[in-house]
């Protein structure tokens, strides 16, 4: 899953259907969906949000969503 990636690691999203519907919609608006290659830019401390990079744009999501998103590590 996405939350297991470390800072600087990349992965391709394989399944996003378990994430919250609104979060999924918002990520889709930003172009992030199954098949998107994302890179973890940073992880905020104390279980804070994850900052992802996709095609040169950065997006912040919560850890609890990152746990729900399955990825294949690159």
């Amino acid at each position: 899953m996405l939350a297991q990636l470390k800072t600087g690691e990349k992965g391709i999203i394989s399944n996003i259907s378990k994430a919250d519907a609104l979060v999924r919609r918002r990520l889709l608006d930003l172009g992030i969906t199954e098949g998107s290659e994302v890179c973890i830019k940073c992880i905020m401390p104390f279980g804070g949000p994850y900052m992802l990079e996709y095609c040169g744009q950065c997006v912040g999501i919560r850890r609890k969503e990152a746990i729900q998103i399955e990825v294949e590590r690159l």
Binding site: R26, P49, M51, Q57, C58, V59, G60, R62, E65
Partner: peptide
């Protein structure tokens, strides 16, 4: 109600 947080971080 649930909470939602997805934020775009502009350059």
């Amino acid at each position: 109600e649930t909470s939602l947080f997805v934020i775009e971080l502009p350059p």
